[in-house]
Design a protein around this nucleic acid. Structure first.
Length: 492
RNA sequence: CGGGACGUAGCGCAGGCCGGUAGCGCACCAGGCUGGGGGUCUGGGGGUCGCAAGUUCGAAUCUUGUCGUCCCGACCA
């Protein structure tokens, strides 16, 4: 199979698709719209999971697991939420197959085995979870309830894209219950910070924290907060959301508690999630024409060592030295892979690990060993140099941090460069075509204007940034007065 | 569900108008030379040409039907 990537300038979508598949992260599957996450992609996800999970626990959360199926009657209970997801639900109607009497060896759905009540495959778990919480919460002493689950969900999308929008995807969803509104709002914002910190510090992707407009709000939420990232092609990607649910779900599922004064009230809630979509964000934020560029903190392999040898004897000599280096790296907690397989020649391996985005590559041959050095290549800036074997492990440890910082800085300056103010409609349209990215512009605050802008330009309001500067101005579209700028972009 | 394209070896494709032994590149298997940026030589294995019917002495090729995939729209809390 050809490993060459489509040149991205031809077609960013195709470049992205090629990259996902050829780097070994994932592939299409036998099921329409669903993908197979391959071991390399899953290892990346596990690293992301581990860090997020740690951060959730540090903020007081615990994990649990709820069923995949949601009875239709429960699903319907919160009306707005049900409506919002209705068009993309997979539904289980039967529980048995039988041999097809007309067609030997084939199976048909057994009409006798029709379910009395259909089961919805969760597109999100609010319904089943809030139904369960009703039984768990009686008193303020049961609150707050801070639960997260790692799960899969299904949303039957018309068009799918690897990682960014697949029919089934992996995610985490947090569902919390609180005694007061303020506590629930605080929780919503705490998680927003966790998400922003994770994406910026671990994935090295800068994000804007903000508030969604009512149009873009989660169905059933009072407020939806989000982190928005900007991809290299200038399109925005919603990287995570945290919702303040008010008492909507508590009312829909009748979840009440007695407070200290023995007064009965509905609980206050939040829900929040990030998914394997983050991997899509990672790919589109950092990669280049040679392949992925993974941030060291979450890269499945941080250092790859490639021996260069002629014949078995020299291979053995290098193997021995490599083993020593590997030990030193492992002591420092560095994830290292030694590829002395005979399947491919060094040149092939170099290209292969660049495609996979491994941050540091060491190449070592007899020549280097005579000089007590290795050749070290950085994936992020494609720089190669000879480095002394003395204190190599410490050098690499520092370099990994430097690389992490460097790719963050690079992504940040790319975003800064692609973020522009627009003050007229003509300017706005011109920017969208000629300089895609975030456009900071005034908006009159109405849903109608937002909708018209979307229809005429395909750009949506990504968010109203938190701690936004207040500034008098006039709406880019209608000219009506406005008090602040919001961020527009075309989005994935 | 509208508009377009495409189903031929594991992957990527040619052949199709003009019907006549199933092809190419990569991958795979065996062996050799090799090895510091995707090497090379020799030999080999692998395909009911998406499925079904029709036309024909003969269909990957023509006709009709059907199933499926991808792209562009619509859709995407």
């Amino acid at each position: 199979m050809s490993k060459e990537l489509t040149t991205r300038r031809e077609d960013y979508s195709q470049w992205y698709n090629d990259l996902v598949i050829k780097s070994g992260l994932a592939d299409y599957s036998a099921v329409r719209g669903c993908m197979v996450i391959k071991p390399y992609g899953y290892a990346l996800w596990e690293n992301m999971q581990a860090q997020l999970d740690k951060m959730f626990k540090e903020t007081g959360h615990v994990n649990a697991y709820f069923p995949l199926f949601v009875p239709k009657s429960l699903f319907e209970a919160e009306e707005k939420n049900a409506e919002g997801f209705a068009k993309e639900c997979a539904v289980v109607t039967h529980y048995r197959l039988k041999s097809d009497p007309e067609n030997k060896g084939k199976l048909i759905v057994d009409p006798e085995a029709k379910l009395e009540e259909e089961l919805i495959i969760r597109p999100t778990s609010e319904a089943i979870i809030w139904h369960t919480y009703k039984g768990w919460i009686q008193s303020y002493r049961d609150l707050p309830l801070l639960i997260n689950q790692w799960a899969n969900v299904v949303r039957w999308e018309m068009r799918t894209r690897l990682f960014l929008r697949t029919a089934e995807f992996l995610w985490q969803e947090g569902h919390t219950a609180h005694a007061t509104k303020q506590e629930a709002v605080d929780e919503t914002l705490t998680i927003l910070d966790v998400y922003a910190t994770f994406v910026e510090e671990w994935m090295a992707v800068p994000v804007v924290k903000g508030l969604k407009t009512p149009n873009e709000r989660f169905a059933g939420a009072e407020e939806t907060y989000c982190i928005e990232a900007l991809m290299q092609d200038g399109k925005a990607l919603q990287a995570g959301t945290s919702h303040f649910l008010g008492q909507n779900f508590a009312k829909a599922f009748d979840v009440k508690f007695s407070d200290k004064e023995n007064k009965l009230d509905y609980v206050w809630a939040s829900s929040w999630g990030v998914s394997t979509r983050l991997i899509g964000a990672l790919i589109m934020a950092h990669s280049d024409d040679q392949g992925l560029i993974l941030p060291p903190k979450i890269a499945p392999v941080q250092v790859v060592i490639i021996p260069i040898y002629k014949g078995e004897e020299s291979k053995l000599v290098i193997d021995t030295k490599a083993k020593e280096i590997i030990e030193n790296l492992k002591v420092l907690g560095i994830r290292v892979k030694y590829d002395n397989s005979d399947n491919a020649r060094p040149g092939w391996k170099f290209a292969e690990y660049e495609l996979k985005g491994v941050p540091i590559r060491l190449a070592m041959g007899l020549r280097d060993m005579e000089n007590n050095v290795v050749e070290l290549a950085r994936r992020d800036i494609k720089e190669k140099k000879s480095v002394s074997l003395d204190d190599l492990a410490d050098y690499i440890k520092n370099l990994l941090d430097e690389i992490q910082q460097n790719i963050y800085n690079r992504a940040l300056s790319s975003r800064t460069e692609k973020t522009t103010k627009a003050d007229t409609w003509a300017e706005f349209l011109k920017l969208l075509d000629e300089k895609p990215g975030f456009i900071s512009a005034h908006w009159d605050g109405t849903a109608e204007t937002e909708e018209k802008i979307k229809q005429e330009s395909k750009a949506t309001i990504r968010c109203i940034p938190i701690n936004n500067l207040m500034e008098q101005g006039s709406c880019i579209f209608t000219g009506n007065p406005s008090t602040q700028r919001v961020l527009f972009a075309r989005a994935y």
